[in-house]
């Protein structure tokens, strides 16, 4: 952890969450990323069981209930840490959110990665939106309404399948990314590889969001 001095006894902090000398709880620094906070390496494939176990362990460590008899300073720290911990766990628990978060860490801002907008996908979404609009204004039981419904149902199945394919592809990229990190080399080749993976993940994550959004709209309309 990127902390140097205990807020209480001013000695160098060597323990992870507590000062080893005076045993006071230490605030999780604002610069600490969620991976470090939960004691995991910056990887995209994490074991959910391990993650959950660590979360519970740290929840017990920081829970404000256990600090009721402590000083106000310690109570404030425990409250702050518990909040950070909750956000960290919520973010890392979900593979997609975890990837979005890691991309943010790796690139400063996710927007810094130049991506080409998927024009074909956009056209498709807008066309589908037109069909949805037609369906909404049609008589549900009419021949026309039923025909539109069949079209939309087919589209929905197709899009859901594509979403699954995207997720499978993301999973492969996650593994590739982790392998690259594990190798830990810093050559121009690995840097190029790193940039390629980041861009591909960025594109896929964005496209997945567009597809998810239209799928949920479809589902809500024809449900």
């Amino acid at each position: 952890m990127a902390r140097s001095m205990c807020w209480h006894c001013q000695s160098a902090v060597t323990g992870e969450y507590f000062c080893e000398r005076c045993v006071k709880v230490q605030p999780v620094s604002k610069e600490t990323d969620y991976f470090t906070c939960l004691g995991f390496p910056r990887r995209l494939t994490l074991d959910p069981k391990q993650l959950e176990a660590k979360f519970y362990e740290l929840s017990r460590t920081f829970h404000p209930d256990f600090y009721q008899t402590k000083t106000p300073a310690e109570q404030t720290i425990s409250l702050g840490n518990a909040a950070v911990l909750n956000t960290a766990y919520r973010t890392l628990r979900d593979p997609i959110q975890r990837a979005e978060y890691l991309l943010g860490l790796e690139t400063g801002s996710v927007k810094d990665i130049r991506t080409s907008p998927p024009a074909d996908l956009f056209e498709e979404i807008l066309e589908l939106q037109d069909t949805l609009e037609e369906y909404r204004s049609s008589e549900r039981d009419s021949q026309e309404g039923q025909k539109l419904r069949t079209v939309l149902e087919t589209e929905q199945r197709g899009l859901e399948q594509r979403k699954q394919e995207m997720e499978a592809q993301l999973q492969r990229l996650f593994t590739e990314w982790d392998q690259l990190q594990d190798r830990g080399e810093a050559t121009s080749q690995t840097r190029a590889e790193r940039d390629r993976l980041l861009k591909q993940m960025r594109d896929l994550l964005s496209n997945r969001t567009y597809v998810t959004s239209i799928v949920s709209d479809l589902a809500a309309t024809i449900a």
Binding site: V110, P117, A119, F122, E123, L126, S206, T209, Y210, S213
Partner: peptide, 13 residues
């Protein structure tokens, strides 16, 4: 002009 917001999934033409 065709643009999208990857954060929320909005698409605009």
């Amino acid at each position: 002009g065709m643009v999208g917001a990857p954060e929320c999934g909005d698409v605009m033409k």
